[in-house]
Computed example of a mutant assay.
Amino acid sequence: MADVQSWVFLFLGLFGGFAVSIAFWWLINHYFVPNLEFSVEVSRSKVGFYKSGVRHQIAIKNCGQRDAYNVKLRVRLKIKDILNNGGKLWDFMDLSVSDSEYFILRKGSMFRITPLSQTTSGFSRPMFPSEIREKYEQGVLTLDDLFSNYEEMRMFIEVIATDRFSGGAKYFRSKEYSKRDIRNGVFKGRNHLSIHRQSKPSSRS
């Protein structure tokens, strides 16, 4: 009888320890990690500090319970048939951005990501049509030009953020934005879900 009880207590101890470990792992990876949300649309506004006169932005907000640290991101394009010769393959490339790293993103705060087609050197490559290469050389290439040239093109954002307390890092990926997701206007305040009408062209970046 004593042997049976010993085995029972051993089993309960092992099961209890396993259950606690699972619960701790779940908390670290689901609660004590950042929770970033992306805007559902891309804003398009008029600006005076770009030669093209146009700026596109995507908003990201920290909707979690804690601050996000060491936030690193990249904006990527996904283009089907990049040579426009009837192919079916998808090509991927990174877009330059105004800022790709943020030391801290406070709980409840929002920042705006600005893709910079006009400074992405990849558009000088011969695989792109002459009108794209020329606009890049002139510093006036925009997402509008790219979406007009490629019917099957998507843009998305990848982000890695770390929780300061737990050290838990999490990977985030936005939806794939298409030409239909671009809306004229600007993001205001901390609202990442609405694009507001622009009152006048912005004179600062």
Rank of each mutant, 00 (worst) to 15 (best):
V33C: 03
D81V: 03
S202V: 06
R76N: 06
L14P: 03
N85V: 10
S174M: 04
K51P: 03
M155T: 11
A161G: 02
E158W: 04
T120R: 01
M127H: 07
V4W: 10
G13L: 03
F156T: 05
N184V: 15
D91E: 11
L116F: 09
I182V: 15
E41Y: 08
L36F: 02
M1S: 14
I79V: 14
L89G: 07
I132N: 04
N35P: 00
L73W: 01
L193R: 14
F111A: 05
H56T: 07
V97Q: 05
P115Y: 01
F38R: 01
E137F: 08
E41V: 10
D3W: 14
F38G: 00
A68D: 04
K175W: 10
S178N: 08
I113W: 02
G108M: 05
C63T: 15
I113G: 00
G86E: 05
N84T: 10
A59H: 00
M153P: 02
L14I: 15
V71D: 00
T120E: 03
D91Y: 13
A19D: 08
M1Y: 11
F128T: 04
F123S: 01
E176R: 12
M110I: 04
K72Y: 06
F32P: 00
F147W: 04
K72G: 09
S203F: 13
N62P: 02
Y31N: 06
K175L: 14
G139M: 07
R183M: 09
S39R: 02
G64E: 00
N62R: 04
V186L: 06
G16T: 10
L10P: 00
A161P: 01
A68C: 05
K51S: 12
S166F: 09
W25D: 09
L146I: 14
V4I: 15
F18C: 08
W7N: 12
L12S: 13
I28H: 07
M127Q: 13
Q118G: 05
S121D: 09
Y177H: 09
V40Q: 12
K188N: 11
N62W: 03
D163M: 01
S6L: 15
Q118V: 10
V47W: 01
F18V: 08
L83H: 11
S174H: 03
S39C: 06
S202D: 07
N35C: 12
V97Y: 03
L36V: 02
D3N: 14
E152T: 15
F92C: 07
E158F: 06
S109W: 08
L77Q: 01
H192I: 08
P201H: 06
Y171K: 11
N70Y: 13
Q138M: 07
Y50K: 11
R44W: 08
R44N: 10
C63M: 12
F9Q: 12
A23Y: 11
L116T: 11
F38A: 01
F18P: 00
Y102I: 07
F9Y: 13
T162N: 04
A23C: 10
S166K: 07
D67L: 02
G16L: 11
S124H: 05
K135W: 00
S45F: 05
F187G: 01
M1F: 13
A19T: 15
H192A: 06
K188S: 12
G122P: 00
S45R: 10
